[in-house]
Design a protein around this nucleic acid. Structure first.
Lengths: 223, 223
DNA sequence: GTAATAGTGTCTTTGAGACATTATCTA
DNA sequence: TAGATAATGTCTCAAAGACACTATTAC
């Protein structure tokens, strides 16, 4: 009846216009040498989300709430860990492009891996299933919530936001229709009044995240 | 680090055109005398979903897959159970109107309580929060999936399905627009060719659930 | 000038919501 | 007959998708 509790993290970011996930290479059995999701044991008197935040900080060096974190799903199949009964509460994190992937202490073998590559390789434990569930959650989150902005820095252009959507959904989006939809969706984006030409071409407006939590209407992925 | 694992169940059904949840009255401390969600400990070598199905069968007498069951969320705040560290994996079940609420063994004090009543009363542990989360999940499930039919018997009329939506969403829906939307949504409903006049008036077609898992387009709750 | 991206507008189709109308049963 | 519900149609508005066009920068 007593079980060991862990938290595992599906941390997504966008690197070089591709969706990438943070994985760590296991140094010890079981599954030695395989890629795995970062995670660790829940401590005594520690809330699940606190444990996830702690692991997130350890692996990425990012503290505080600049990264979106939510509970994904709990995996407890007997035998999922050969060492005993271990139940893991998987969490999903969406982060902007972070400085260095190896900022943490014991994350010496951590790396950002493109998601399609990660899904094409053998991962430790049931992490393939967890990663697939996290990807599907992220994709639908972008439809109904403004969380695509969680992948962007504090200010960003519509072009940059669109490339987030394209990376997560895996297909191209018409820039003109996208521009119209996101800028007219009330509460999604806030115009800072500033401009940038870092994307080349005509200078683009810089936006901040708005304060809504749900998009009306949603931005359905057509395709 | 070792914790006790339980599963708790938010079991919804429609009774007398109202959304109701199955609650049990606690006979022992803590929270003696309070209403609580049904649930119990996960057994050794038992999968989480299997544990939830077992509890569901014990409480409702329903076996097999006539009831929709899915994982809702995991609650593990330290102190949520005064007896020690107990982490619970809450599940959501959607059931058609069942024969007797007290069919099970130790469910001698089980009852179907209208959801607004349940949310207005003090529940044991953090079950108020779990119930509220389950209600929100059920409401959004009806938008994007065909699971409204999980509340209906094997065959049902459009009228009966509409009353499910009205009970879950808590507001009236135009019968004519609803009829058009659900019957034209491909894969949602299958016409059995039979008719019934159990609702009075002109006989209505009887439908079965279709085989889609997602509705295109969704049936958004307008309000 | 060209090349690139930013931003707006236009057209067609689809669906949502409001609501009229006809159909088919029971009492 | 009246009264109920079933099923379809009509109208208007909003949004999606396709795509033309203008605007503003770098070179």
């Amino acid at each position: 009846m007593p079980v060991s509790m862990t938290v595992d993290l599906v941390i997504f970011t966008i690197r070089e216009q591709r969706l990438a996930v943070l994985l760590v290479r296991r140094g010890i059995p079981p599954y030695q040498g395989r890629w795995a999701l970062p995670g660790g044991f829940v401590e005594d008197r520690e809330d699940l989300e606190a444990a996830a935040r702690r692991e997130l900080a350890e692996e990425t060096g990012v503290h505080a709430g600049s990264v979106h974190l939510e509970q994904l799903r709990t995996y407890g199949r007997p035998g999922r860990d050969p060492r005993g009964r271990v139940v893991t509460v998987a969490h999903l994190a969406l982060a902007p492009d972070l400085p260095a992937p190896t900022a943490g202490s014991d994350a010496a073998h951590a790396a950002w891996i493109p998601v399609d590559e990660a899904l094409g390789s053998k991962l430790a434990f049931d992490h393939h299933e967890i990663l697939a569930d996290g990807l599907e959650r992220a994709r639908s989150k972008l439809e109904y919530s403004p969380l695509g902005t969680a992948f962007c820095p504090a200010t960003f252009t519509v072009n940059e936001l669109r490339r987030v959507y394209e990376a997560v959904w895996g297909h191209e989006i018409d820039p003109r229709n996208f521009h119209r939809k996101v800028t007219r969706s009330t509460g999604f984006l806030v115009d800072t009044g500033e401009r940038t030409n870092r994307d080349g071409g005509r200078p683009a407006r810089l936006f901040r995240r708005g304060d809504v939590h749900l998009l009306h209407p949603p931005l359905l992925r057509g395709e």
